[in-house]
Design a protein around this nucleic acid. Sequence first.
DNA 1: AATGAATGAGTATTCATTCAT
DNA 2: AATGAATGAATACTCATTCAT
Lengths: 236, 236, 236, 236
Amino acid sequence: METGSGVEARERIINAAVELFSQKGYDATRVNDIASAANVNKALIYYYFKNKQDILDFMVHSLLNNAVSITLDFIHTHIVQMIGKGCLDILPDRLHFVNEEAKQEFIQNTCKFYERVVDYAIEKRSIIRILMLESLKNGKHQNSLFQMMDFVANNENNPIIKTISSADQDFAYSDEMVLFRFFFSIIPIVSFAAYYDDYKEVSALSDKELRDSFLRVSNIIIASMVSGSDILLRSK
Amino acid sequence: METGSGVEARERIINAAVELFSQKGYDATRVNDIASAANVNKALIYYYFKNKQDILDFMVHSLLNNAVSITLDFIHTHIVQMIGKGCLDILPDRLHFVNEEAKQEFIQNTCKFYERVVDYAIEKRSIIRILMLESLKNGKHQNSLFQMMDFVANNENNPIIKTISSADQDFAYSDEMVLFRFFFSIIPIVSFAAYYDDYKEVSALSDKELRDSFLRVSNIIIASMVSGSDILLRSK
Amino acid sequence: METGSGVEARERIINAAVELFSQKGYDATRVNDIASAANVNKALIYYYFKNKQDILDFMVHSLLNNAVSITLDFIHTHIVQMIGKGCLDILPDRLHFVNEEAKQEFIQNTCKFYERVVDYAIEKRSIIRILMLESLKNGKHQNSLFQMMDFVANNENNPIIKTISSADQDFAYSDEMVLFRFFFSIIPIVSFAAYYDDYKEVSALSDKELRDSFLRVSNIIIASMVSGSDILLRSK
Amino acid sequence: METGSGVEARERIINAAVELFSQKGYDATRVNDIASAANVNKALIYYYFKNKQDILDFMVHSLLNNAVSITLDFIHTHIVQMIGKGCLDILPDRLHFVNEEAKQEFIQNTCKFYERVVDYAIEKRSIIRILMLESLKNGKHQNSLFQMMDFVANNENNPIIKTISSADQDFAYSDEMVLFRFFFSIIPIVSFAAYYDDYKEVSALSDKELRDSFLRVSNIIIASMVSGSDILLRSK
DNA sequence: AATGAATGAGTATTCATTCAT
DNA sequence: AATGAATGAATACTCATTCAT
């Protein structure tokens, strides 16, 4: 029996869960509520998902996979290419650009990447909120936020490191660079998405104003990151 | 029956609640668990607190009050004083220092303030984790993180604004300044505290290394903030 | 879609149900489990059977019908014949044999009958286990074990009584004979079958040893039954 | 608030559970029903017991402990004593009595023991029914009936064996003796208790008639056991 | 004959909270 | 101040059964 909107039941369940989890948190969301919101029978939820946690896991994995794709795409089409062309060299202690033009190009590209990431984050802010929420709880759920840390860390499985390394052998992030990127790049973006609606209400800014403000302010950080890279990058 | 350590029952309840809330989140923490961890009878918790929420509220309020005190203390002994001495003028569009020395003094003081705040945040990281956790849930609990936003916003009740204004009449934060301070200053510090233990484990840094790294990296931000203040400060 | 082995779906359902019911009991067996084990779609089970109970009923009825056949076959070819030949007379208070040879023949035949019954019971032990299991529950299901009692009781519908009566008019079991046969003949055999696998594991005997031991021990009972029949048989 | 009869709540829960489990089986009994029957709040059941299974376990353990006590008591005051006085010698291949009088005494004592056991079994028939019921299910619950087998087996932990051995060093049950005792002594008694009410209804006997019939019939078995002991006992 | 999707009515278990002492 | 017992209202999850195809 086709009920609710034209969307398939499974889809509706996920959408409802995203909405509710991001509003009340995982624990405070009742499976009953998800069923009502999705306009499906509660038992059907258990037909499609092993249990409540399984719904959350599905959502989070989808998000992370997409985030990786976007990032790798950027690295491939810009960083790797610049290294390949000899415009950029990631030295043990700093980013070295062949000339000012290359540096500006790099900053510009990075800003564009930020733009894309921030837009994606805003779009998926509900799920990001959940991810942040759950990442703050120990024991029960794996800390999914920290899976993101793998993208900034010198992890062997980090596809980003792999990609850059394949272009520039002796490359490694310093501990401080990792920390900087995590707390002053990833965390602000994630928080921006997570608190987007709250902040919008408090600040009384329009969507466009809010987004543009955040991106403009981010540019300062990006500039700091490039200029200050001599402090932040260090040899292995 | 006097059980547990010499600490009073009420104290033990709060300590246990802090620990558990910060680990599992408010919703997932059972009053039973708190009672066990505090080594008191469950009913005694209801003797000291109206209900579960009441325990949380008490903890969060304590934290916020302390945070305000520390901040106001800094403003009073440094900012207000510099304004009073004419060394600093908060113009509509930028911070104006009477000379480079004043600027350096300001940066140094701000760094020291950061140090103190970060140390306090690390100390209280359990409660901060809760605060962050709960701030991500709508509806049920007031968003306590956003009470912090009052400290960076042009809010009439903001005691910080009040204090500065009393020294410098026509002072106001630009929207962008507020956003910057919120997402690139408060949020990183709060996140740093909230994720402190997780990050420490992942990064394998010592307490000292972690703290010092964060502070060093923060300095870059502080510098950006002062230098970039021409972009960030604007008239109302 | 033809799945599983060549066996027809209906067959596979029954086999799976036998196995599962005998392992977990009727209530604890899920229709889902049966479907999985039988490698059929759950709904197909409802195509072949009215409901879950219907599967059980089918199995139990098959078993009972076979048991009756085996027993009647024995009565016909041995007891009735002996009575007919005048070798055996079932008197109000005892079995009377025309001579020692007849008695020995009777005992031997009875032992052979036991052998056949025990072998059949071992073969069908799964279903017997179910039958025993369900016979211990009131209310919901008819007590199928007690349908067996009909075979030892002076019941008018008892085909065994009917058969013997047709050969020996004034024949009747005493109450004690009925009780003896039920608790020291039927119950041990049924239990032997039901607990066969458990007992085998605990005793570490081989199939042959176990079967033979049981039959040998049964002979003692059969002998007691014939010798002690003066106590056990009594007029109505 | 004291509700229901004067009996304590915990007691009432156990009584209700015994009644219901023995009527419908463990699986088919609802915790709700137990609560209603015991006239307590459902949650109180979980205050006293970890879960549903825990109620069952408590009941079964109580029963088994009592059964052991009764048996050991008998062994101590009769068997051990007879061995000690030299009246009875458990030889490798048979029970050897110093004279006919001793044999008769032994049989008589054993009959009395049976009487006591049967009376206890009748009294506790509800729990025994559960025990039998659950012993027929694999996997989920330990087979508690088989804990009884420990009492007839050459198990090292068998307190009965221990006790007899302490009086008569080279004593051991043959496999067949074990099997005999299990299927023709324990099982009939247990079944008698389990099916007591059903049997009574079917047979239309009074309690006294039923009990006495069973005991009289048992005597035949006891006699077989003693006389036939030459087959059943064998050297280690 | 066969199946994926759907559902109503449970079912064990949990939990914040209260009460009597 | 402290506690053992008690409770109402949920809550996640299950399951036999049905339906449309």
